[in-house]
Nucleic acid binder design. Structure first.
Lengths: 156, 156
DNA sequence: CTTGACCTTGTAGCGACTATAGGGTTTGCA
DNA sequence: TGCAAACCCTATAGTCGCTACAAGGTCAAG
């Protein structure tokens, strides 16, 4: 199976597959005489594993770790638990802060009722006032990596 | 006020302030004879406005737009409404997909009950099985920019 | 023998910072 | 007056997880 076929079967882009190989997540496949990558069922499984973990929001570093655990199955399981727990709490934090954010945005949206010029726009007024009122009230809207911003949060 | 003082008052890092200036979000301040940036209350307000918008998850491009609206208050207010609406729906999508993700991770966490080796780890087993079962079931966990990934979503 | 679809490597770009190197300035204290 | 610490400056490279491009090689069909 060539890389394009693997891409088709997994829904992953060709460039991304090569990127995962470069990053050491996907094992390097055999090559044809002309240098083309040739994949087998095992590597299809590997890639699906990676994609599934990515769809659970895990970082490539986390997936690399999981793959190492898979390879040496005599290791302690605690590390996997910890990894998942970290992921759970990260996502939970993200959900909470985004919900808060959504409330704030909806409140903001309510401030403007079809006026015609910016001068009368309640949204803009509210934004300006809010930023004046509270020089640094940290809402910590985002967990960490997906949307870090300067103002609100020490990295953990 | 020097840049360090501005940083202290806003909770924003010095490097980030300089970055915002480079990006044209913050107006360039006057300089002392030795080239040090000197800020006044107006620019403190500007920066707080930027930080507040960032804390609402807006992109720098959006904030640039809002600032332009603020500057020319004769413009139509509809654009601001649209901008906020886009932001609301973006955040709403993110919340929804993250909640789904959280459920999946919690279910995953339940698969492992203090076994001792990776060989018996329910989490790893579940991950492998799930990735085998469904070559490309797209859960679209993340909205768009904060955490894009290959597998799940066409950019909008 | 050419066309087009594939494959290769290498490099640069995205957003929003963050960090580093390598220097200049200012302030306070002995 | 000398000096160290704390500040400031610019420019450049790194982060993450891709994505896109350039410039070329390969292969099957017509």
């Amino acid at each position: 199976m060539l890389i394009g076929e693997l891409a088709r079967q997994t829904g992953c882009e060709v460039e991304t597959i090569r990127y995962y190989e470069r990053e050491g997540l996907l094992s390097a496949p055999l090559r044809s005489a002309s240098g083309y990558r040739r994949y087998n069922a095992e590597q299809l499984g590997e890639l699906n594993f990676i994609l599934h973990c990515r769809s659970l929001g895990m970082s490539l570093a986390d997936i690399r770790q999981l793959a190492a655990f898979k390879a040496d199955s005599s290791l302690a399981c605690d590390d996997i638990n910890q990894l998942i727990d970290r992921q759970v709490s990260k996502v939970h934090q993200q959900v909470e802060s985004l919900r808060l954010l959504e409330q704030q945005l909806l409140a903001l949206r309510d401030r403007c009722h079809d006026h015609h010029t910016v001068a009368e726009c309640g949204i803009l007024q509210t934004l300006v006032e809010a930023s004046e009122g509270e020089p640094c009230v940290c809402h910590t809207p985002f967990g960490q990596d997906p949307h870090p911003h300067p103002h609100s949060m020490e990295k953990q």
